[in-house]
Amino acid sequence: MNTYRIAVCALVLLTGAPHTLAASSVDLSVKGRLTPTACTPLLSSNGLIDYGKISQQDLNLEKGTRLPVKHLQVSIGCNAPNRFALRMRDNRDGTAMVNSEIYYGLGLDNSGNRIGLYSLTFDPRQTQADSLATAYGTESTTGGLAWRTANLNPIDIGANSYLGFTDTEGSTTGPTAIQALTSTVKIEAVINAKQNLDLSSDTLLDGSATLEVLYL
C-alpha cells in the first residue's frame, strides 16, 4: 500500500501595531513521493483460518472459550530492498469482545451479540528476512515518528501501530531495507461466553482483516 504524506502549512501573524495590514492570501503545500518500489504480501492457505464445526456444548458458560492455536505463513516480496512496515485493518471493526487494536472481531450472531475475537502474533525468532542471521522486531505507535527498541519479543500486530523488522538489536531507527521476508504467525481466537450468545441456530465465525504493507 502506497502512502503519501500531505503537509498543510499556514502562518498567521498577529501584531499590536495599529497600521499593520493583514495578508489576504495563504500558501498551501502538497507534498509526497512516488516510488518505483513495490511489495506484495502473500498468506498461506489463501489467508483462511478454518476452525470447522464447534459444538455449543464445548463452550464455557460464563467465560470465553479459547480455540486451538493456529499458524499462518506471511510472505512479503519486494522488487528491491525497501523499508516497510505492516499494519492490519479489521473488516469487522467493532465486533471484538475487547476494545483493543490488537484484537479483531469474529462478527455478530443472529441477535447482534459479539461472537468473539482473535489476534495475530509475529515472532522475530520465526521470521527470516533476506540473508539476515537474525531479524529483530520493532513497533511504532506514532505513525513511524518513533520506534520501539528492536528485540526478539513477539509482537501482536495492531490496527493503529506499525510493525517492522531490522538487522540491529537495540535499534530505535525503525525497519531496515528488506526485499524478501517470511514469518510464521500465531493466531489465537476466543469465543464469547456461551451465556452471552444466541445459539438457537448455526452461528458462523466471520472474521476478516486486511494486511497492509506501508512504505517508509
Rank of each mutant, 00 (worst) to 15 (best):
L120C: 11
N113Q: 13
F84T: 01
S100P: 05
E101D: 14
E101H: 13
S140C: 14
T127E: 02
D109G: 09
I76P: 02
T121M: 12
S119E: 08
R66S: 14
N110Q: 15
N60P: 04
T138N: 02
K70V: 03
S119T: 10
A129M: 04
A80L: 08
D93S: 14
G112N: 07
V69T: 15
C78Y: 01
T65G: 06
R89G: 10
N110H: 09
I49W: 07
N110D: 14
G64I: 08
M88H: 04
R66E: 14
G137A: 15
G94L: 06
G137M: 05
N79C: 03
Y104P: 00
Q56A: 13
Q56R: 11
I54G: 00
T121C: 12
Y118L: 07
L61A: 14
M97K: 06
P124W: 11
L108K: 04
V74D: 03
N113H: 14
T134M: 08
I49P: 02
Q126G: 00
A80K: 01
T127V: 04
Q57P: 00
Q73F: 01
S140D: 12
I76E: 04
A85R: 00
Q57E: 15
S131M: 00
V98I: 13
G77V: 09
S100H: 12
Q56N: 11
T65E: 12
L86Y: 09
D109R: 08
L132G: 00
G107D: 02
A96C: 07
G105V: 05
Q128V: 13
L106I: 08
L59H: 07
A85T: 03
Y118F: 15
I115W: 11
T95E: 04
V69S: 12
M88P: 03
N110F: 12
K70S: 03
G77I: 09
G137T: 05
L72R: 06
R66I: 05
T65D: 11
Q57A: 10
G112M: 05
A85G: 04
Q128H: 07
I76C: 04
T127I: 04
T127D: 05
R87F: 04
L132R: 07
S140R: 10
N79H: 04
I115N: 07
T127Y: 02
R89D: 15
T95N: 01
L117M: 14
G112E: 06
L108N: 01
V69Y: 01
K63I: 13
L108M: 09
L120Y: 06
Y136L: 00
L106V: 06
S55K: 09
S55W: 06
Y136D: 11
L86S: 03
T141R: 10
Q73G: 05
E62Y: 15
Y51F: 12
N99G: 08
A129E: 07
G64Y: 03
N60D: 10
Y51I: 00
T134V: 12
I49M: 02
T127S: 01
L72C: 08
N79A: 05
A135H: 02
I54V: 09
I115S: 06
N60C: 10
S75Y: 05
